[in-house]
Design a protein around this nucleic acid. Structure first.
Lengths: 147, 147
DNA sequence: CTGCATGCTCTAGTCGCTAGAGGATCAAGC
DNA sequence: GCTTGATCCTCTAGCGACTAGAGCATGCAG
């Protein structure tokens, strides 16, 4: 019965030690056994579970979505329509984010195109930031966090 | 001398009241005058400054970059090379983020393409998340926050 | 004069970790 | 046996950029 210390698990899964403890704390990982000295002892299933979590995080799934996906995976009886729905939601979110970022990139490029060497008073960048009406298009939404 | 309450300023600038207070707290907005009843009284320059901040935030500039840009704008003597550099950095960050998201989108689409109506045990989505080796390409980095 | 909107300050919560304090224990080398 | 450094433990606080709420003081309209 190969049991892993948290350090070995971290190396095996390429997830940092504090992150593993954090995932346990928020209930994504079940509390592992403990050795007599109170150290965590993980089984090989923990490696798989962490791989799942890590991969889903890389794909931008928020923790709560991952919790749902893990619940689904833990219970093979359940219908997987939920998992498909989560994946579709995630695609939509990614598409929206890409569209936003492309609008922003074009505005930034236009803004930075006219390089100025002079004083800040007639700096294109600052001018462009001061006056939204110079933008070609509206910004759909503020671009922020998530994903 | 048209002085604005924080509520009017919020409406004029389309920045929420608590956000305005927050910007004052972190020093992006100078502390405004106060009426006898301790309420804030803003001049029209606050509207312009907030528009600048809001626009820069929409473009994904982090607060510290905005602080630098505002310092530049406040001091017209200074060279604007810094502003150009910030804009260029921002473009690079946006480009990188777009590239990441496009890789993710293609993986998500591939993952969700095979829709299953069965039990979660043979759900493509969960299977794909369980096994990173099914991915066509490596994920460059975890996709996270900023911008 | 009543009631609601707006204002104030202060604190805590969000998300997903990350960093650090302060201490216990382990493994290896001498 | 002893020292040294790595690893482990728990707990708390911090990041960025707000957002939400408590608890209270005002302002304004009907």
């Amino acid at each position: 019965m190969p049991s892993l210390s948290i350090g070995k698990l971290a190396k095996a899964s390429e997830v940092k030690v504090p992150t593993i403890r954090f995932y346990e704390q928020i209930g994504l990982l079940p509390p592992p056994e403990r050795a007599a000295n109170d150290r965590r002892l993980f089984g090989p299933d923990a490696v798989r579970r962490l791989a799942f979590i890590k991969h889903a995080r890389q794909l931008g799934f928020p923790i709560e979505a991952i919790r749902t996906l893990l619940d689904l995976a833990d219970d093979p009886e359940r219908d997987c329509a939920d998992a498909n729905a989560l994946a579709r939601e995630q695609i939509i979110a990614v598409d929206r984010k890409i569209a936003q970022l492309e609008a922003l990139r074009s505005e930034l490029k236009r803004m930075a195109a006219a390089t100025c060497q002079g004083a800040a008073s007639d700096c294109r960048v600052i001018e462009a930031l001061s006056d939204h009406s110079l933008c070609e298009a509206d910004h759909p939404e503020p671009v922020r966090a998530s994903i």
